[in-house]
Design a protein around this nucleic acid. Structure first.
Lengths: 251, 251
DNA sequence: CAGTGGTCTAGACCACGTG
DNA sequence: ACGTGGTCTAGACCACTGC
């Protein structure tokens, strides 16, 4: 008779005992299904009991793992319906990743004008920001974003060409990009790190935004990361805040 | 024999059935012990089993409530030791509420110079920001904050006098205030909302920071809130960012 | 060693959504 | 009526801390 560990369960590689708690391994296993695309955005995933049987753990352990994934916004739980992989819509992308509000607290729904896109060899800074090898290409998108139909924000977006084949050739580049990333390129923006500084408007930006050169602008330098923790976008926004502000909550 | 509801448990006001789940009421009951000071900052609170007996719920339900309080940073859990009410130290206050970093990613440990404090009648804007009644007084603290011993940030802090009796008369106002608020005035800063804009330096600020007037500055307008959700501090910081930046993470 | 929080399980019942 | 996630309980064992 074969020797069998008392705590033997699923011998799959994904649930191998690496010293971490069971729920942590179950979470990693489910994360992997999402990252790999085996569970697609918007898809209903199996029930807790079903996943528990599949992974060889109890339903309560699956629940703990799913609750954690839900807190990280990778799944959405709906009582009576089931658990779904997140799907980015223009609305919730704006809500999560656009932090500029009117001073009265109301939302700004930005528009886009003057959008241009082109492919180019990545320069040193672009390669550094996007963690790209020498000789890699990038797609560069420039646009002005509007508030009440007036330009108030000049934006430069840099993407690794290899992961966005064909984007530069699209005629219509939409206002919110992250839902496009997810739905057309299978890339989910999981988080973004922003660095904010204040700069003086140069001549070109001042002209584009209808300001005097030297006007103070908020500069937002953002790197967005995909599920696999790889940088997927570098974006610099120069914002003229007149009766508006960037908002952050510290906890 | 008296009629008794099947689900009857503790009849205390704090655990009265208001339609919310048990763990939610248990959490509110424990939050109240912290807010009221019955459980003091830094104090070891009773064990999960003990609290469960006291509130008439199972240990697992207490655990769910405590996990939630721990995520909100109101308690700290230490395996083998127990659960403690959070206590603010200068280090973790700086870590949580000071978001300016060197561009190379290293922390800035700011100093303070030229600190002045005085009491005054609150003006309209101060009353509005701190939700104070007509005729209320405030303590106003002005200071310059230094980076590598050079001033880079001009700060104005406004506090409701009623909750900070005697602060204006202190000779030594420390560099980090929130741990002082907690330890001397019993006020725990639970969260802060920041509004960021870019402004041009006026003459006075330019002089204080050694800049040319008109230099772009990051303006951070912060309102900090106590556990009871009341605004407890209004702070405006004007920052000269040269090789440094404000950092925010979007999830 | 005893006491704490951390993990894991099993099972019951509830609330919600759909057929 | 049925299946889902949400709540709640009880109990077992583990890992860590301090006496």
């Amino acid at each position: 008779m074969a020797i069998r560990s008392e705590t033997a369960r699923k011998t799959t590689r994904e649930m191998a005992d690496d010293g971490r708690p069971l729920y942590s391994r179950a979470k990693a296993a489910m994360f992997d299904r999402i990252r790999s695309g085996r569970w697609q955005p918007g898809q209903l995933i199996p029930s807790e009991a079903e996943i528990g049987r599949e992974l060889g753990v109890s339903q309560g352990t699956v629940r703990k793992a799913l609750d954690s994934l839900a807190r990280e916004r990778l799944v959405v739980r709906r009582q009576g319906k089931g658990t779904f992989v997140v799907e980015h819509t223009p609305e919730d992308v704006l809500f999560r990743f656009f932090q500029i509000y009117e001073d009265d607290g109301s939302r700004i729904i930005p528009g886009s004008v003057g959008v241009t896109a082109r492919t180019m060899l990545a320069d040193n800074r672009q390669r550094q920001r996007l963690d790209l090898p020498n000789g890699a290409h990038v797609i560069r998108i420039d646009r002005l974003r509007t508030r009440k139909n007036r330009p108030f924000m000049a934006e430069t977006i840099v993407l690794p060409r290899a992961r966005f084949q064909g984007l530069a050739e699209r005629r219509d580049i939409p206002n919110t990009l992250y839902d496009l990333f997810q739905q057309r390129f299978g890339i989910l923006v999981a988080r973004a790190d922003e660095r904010l500084t204040a700069v003086a408007a140069n001549k070109e930006t001042a002209r584009d935004l209808g300001l005097a050169p030297g006007s103070p602008l908020l500069r937002i330098d953002r790197v967005a990361y995909a599920l696999d923790e790889r940088p997927i976008e570098w974006r610099v926004s120069l914002v003229h805040l007149d009766g508006a502000h960037y908002t952050a909550r510290l906890r």
